[in-house]
Design a protein around this nucleic acid. Structure first.
Length: 769
DNA sequence: CAGTGAGCGAGCTTCCGCTTGACTT
């Protein structure tokens, strides 16, 4: 029996700490929260002071019973969960569920995982901070109330299975509003003039100097006039000035900045970054990856100094301690850094290595000297004109941290080079002067990582929820992540060369997008609905406002039930009102009349997604319906595009004497042949124009695949089959599926074998909550 | 992997934040 049981949140942390504490200490993990509100009937007794009804989460039953046993036999139980609101609540739930005797229970916290810090913590135990626990309960209850009262309104008024919440609904709103800005955006153009000059120095060496006119000309005519005025002009250097500049490194990684940089530099998605980081953490290579803190431990700072001295020398060192500036940060952990900073690389997969090296570089760079630059500006006068040209250059005097790490924004900057040695008074020869038409850009669409950044700035969501939030809004269909091709656009160019001005038109690609988040129709509809009825919750400051109140609760200045009551009173009234009064929302938009029948054509969200309708329900003729295509949007589809949809399903041709038709169904575009359905490729096949050759190809491919799908069929019972599925072979019996034991060969199973497996094994399907 | 249509039925869906494996129809 162990004298002492220490409980932390993460098993990897438990392993490390156990090494520091010695034999009398057994360190175990709770795997995060062990209890949560019951899912049935809200899990909150509203009439009894919002009393929460907690139950042990099904997947935590095992952990809890093990901890209970160990706690019973230990002399002292040390609750060492994180020092933030959630951590305090975990400690409290543990004390409750394990029925810990207060006499033998101690609450401790440490900020670094080092032997000293932990031993220090053991010397200074305290009790559980009930105010902090209450702040967490208020947070939890508020989120449950909002989520479980808003979502059912959406099921009734818009579509089943939709969801709304304090965090996700605001995330979608950000995307919807940005998309609307982009839709309304009209680019304007102006002309940018650049010049290439040459001159020879005293040693008769020729140099090239690139310069730009700071004035933008709004029309082709103005740009032309300017070039005309340059035709016979003299160009003289009127001023050369230099000034020093500095660049400082970025702070070490937090969850959010790691996600951003891994996205930009390595092309990782937010969830990919987190799972690679998790593996690095579990292998002991990096510190905890869900953190909002930018601070480094004293120990880490020391090792950083040593490593930098060894790698680059003394003058590259500048020890810095960063302070977090993001709202609502709780800083229970360190920044994300390598556990051993003297390890520049590690063993592992390619992705693990890449992410580790990124973290190493960022951490080391944060402790290095500023880069020193010299910025030079050259002014060039034009005779007979008040306009001028300027040339700028940058020289790196001392690289400092840039030796190891550049933020992506710095990388993207044009590589500025050294200017040629010009002096004031130097006369320049114009080789060519070019006026190019440039268009203004619409505001950028969000990527996964830039959305996380925005949420963090607004104080919405936590490091542990950024990745899940991003996937939830995609799963609900509110948002899609995709690439979109650009369109070509013409732009005009004027070139002055050898005293001649020439005009031409060129084309460029514009507006192409890669891995961007686009709101779908349902996301726009739900957002509009929520903003209309629950403006306060959809407000970007809602979280910040309630966070202030949670903080007051944590400081013992506000009663949590009072706070919730004040919120719920107003909120619930709005809920009832909306359920009673608001109409079902379909986002219907009228497009025009069908030129053939004269029937009205509308688009809206139907029970199976966005659809077009011709004719009115309840009118003389039954209305016709057609699903919209994946790339069409209710807000932007035209009458012509909608009319084309009604041409489906259409006959494609004949194959072996039987008719092949094409249409769009619930699961995308399809072919129908001989009573069976064949999916078309969403991206490359268009059911409106697909030809019979392609159709036959699709049908043949599918037939081939289906042949391989069935491994065995039984005469004894046609309901029983051995099939090849997504996760390998399995047994299908009626509606239920069964796994095949690992030691059996699927091809050799007999009817009796299968019956046996079915009898023994319970279905792998449907899980109970 | 399967399923391809426009409201009968019965009952379910849903939130945010902590944390990892188990194992998907």
């Amino acid at each position: 029996m162990e004298e002492n049981l220490v409980i932390v949140e993460s098993p990897a942390k438990a392993k490390t700490i156990e090494r520091f504490l010695g034999k009398e200490f057994l360190v175990k993990s709770s795997y995060g929260h062990i209890r949560d509100l019951a899912k049935k009937n809200l899990g909150i007794d509203i009439d009894n002071g919002y009393r929460p009804h907690y139950i042990v989460s099904p997947d935590k039953k095992k952990v809890v019973s093990e901890l209970k046993k160990l706690a019973g036999s230990a002399k002292t139980v040390w609750l060492a969960s994180d020092e933030d609101r959630e951590g305090e609540a975990i400690a409290w739930h543990l004390a409750e569920v394990l029925a810990l005797d207060p006499e033998k229970t101690r609450r401790i916290v440490f900020h670094e995982i080092t032997k000293e810090a932990i031993q220090e913590a053991i010397k200074k135990p305290r009790g559980i901070n009930r105010d902090l626990v209450n702040a967490q309960q208020a947070r939890r209850i508020l989120d449950r109330l909002v989520g479980f009262e808003l979502s059912p309104i959406l099921w009734k008024k818009i579509q089943p299975s939709l969801s709304a919440g304090r965090v996700q609904s605001v995330a979608v709103r950000l995307l919807v509003e940005r998309e609307r800005e982009i839709m309304q955006f009209r680019p304007t153009s102006s002309f940018r003039v650049t010049a290439q000059f040459t001159f020879t120095d005293s040693k008769a060496k020729e140099h090239v100097l690139n310069a730009e006119c700071p004035t933008r000309f709004s029309t082709l005519e103005e740009a032309g006039n300017f070039l005309e005025s340059c035709r016979k002009a003299r160009f003289t250097v009127t001023d050369v000035s230099s000034k020093p500049a500095k660049k400082s490194p970025a702070p070490p990684f937090t969850t959010s900045t790691l996600q951003q940089e891994a996205g930009r530099k390595l092309g990782f998605s937010v969830s990919q970054t987190m799972s690679v980081a998790q593996r690095l953490y579990e292998a002991g290579k990096i510190t905890y990856m869900r953190t909002d803190s930018v601070s480094l431990s004293q120990m880490a700072l020391g090792v950083a100094r040593k490593t930098i001295t060894g790698e680059f020398g003394e003058k590259y060192i500048k020890t810095r301690q960063y302070k977090t500036r993001s709202k609502g940060a709780q800083e229970a952990h360190e920044a994300i850094r390598p556990t051993y900073l003297d390890q520049k690389t590690i063993q592992g997969t390619q992705t693990e290595k890449k992410l580790y090296e990124l973290i190493w570089k960022r951490t080391i760079a944060s402790q290095m000297s500023d880069a020193e630059l010299e910025k030079t500006t050259v002014q060039i006068g034009i005779s007979g004109s008040s306009e001028k040209f300027t040339a700028t250059g940058e020289i790196l005097k001392f690289d400092g941290f840039l030796k190891v790490y550049r933020e992506s924004s710095e990388e993207e900057e044009e590589a500025r080079h050294l200017l040629p040695p010009v002096n004031k008074g130097q006369v320049l020869d114009p080789r060519q002067i070019v006026a190019t038409e440039k268009f203004t850009q619409h505001p950028p669409r969000y990527t996964e990582a830039s959305l996380v950044k925005k949420l963090e700035e607004l104080g919405i969501g936590r490091p542990s929820t950024y990745a899940p939030t991003i996937s939830t809004i995609q799963q609900r269909g509110y948002v899609v992540k995709e690439d979109r091709p650009g369109t070509s656009r013409e732009y005009r160019v004027l070139t002055l060369k050898e005293q001649q001005v020439q005009s031409e038109t060129r084309t460029e690609m514009t507006g192409s997008e890669k891995s961007k988040l686009f709101p779908a129709d349902i996301g726009m509809l739900v957002t509009d609905f929520l903003v209309e009825h629950f403006a306060d919750i959809l407000n970007y400051n809602f979280t910040a406002t309630v966070e202030e109140q949670f903080d007051e609760i944590a400081r013992g200045k506000l009663d949590w039930q009072q706070m919730i009551d004040r919120f719920y009173d107003h909120f619930h009234r709005k809920v009832t009102e909306t359920l009673e009064q608001s109409e079902k929302k379909t986002g219907e938009r009228f497009l025009g009349h069908d030129p053939v029948s004269g029937e009205p054509v509308t688009v809206k969200i139907g029970p199976y997604g966005p659809m077009a309708q011709m004719g009115e329900s309840g009118g003389e003729n039954k209305p016709r319906f057609a699903s919209m295509m994946k790339n069409q949007r209710i807000e932007t589809i035209t009458l012509e595009e909608a009319l084309r949809l009604f041409k489906l399903p259409r006959e494609v041709g004949k194959y072996e004497g039987k008719e092949v038709t094409a249409g769009i169904g619930r699961y995308g575009p399809y072919l129908k042949y001989d009573g069976k359905f064949y999916s078309l490729n969403r991206k490359t096949d268009d059911p409106l124009s697909v030809n019979i050759e392609r159709a036959i190809e699709v049908i043949r491919e599918k037939t081939e695949k289906d042949k391989k799908k069935v491994i065995t069929e039984f005469e004894e019972d046609p309901n029983l089959k051995i099939l090849n599925g997504r996760w390998g072979p399995y047994i299908k019996y009626g509606k239920d599926n069964f796994r095949i034991p690992r030691d059996r060969v699927p091809e050799e199973l007999t009817f009796q074998d299968c019956k046996e497996i079915i009898r023994k094994g319970k279905s792998t399907g449907k899980k109970k909550s």
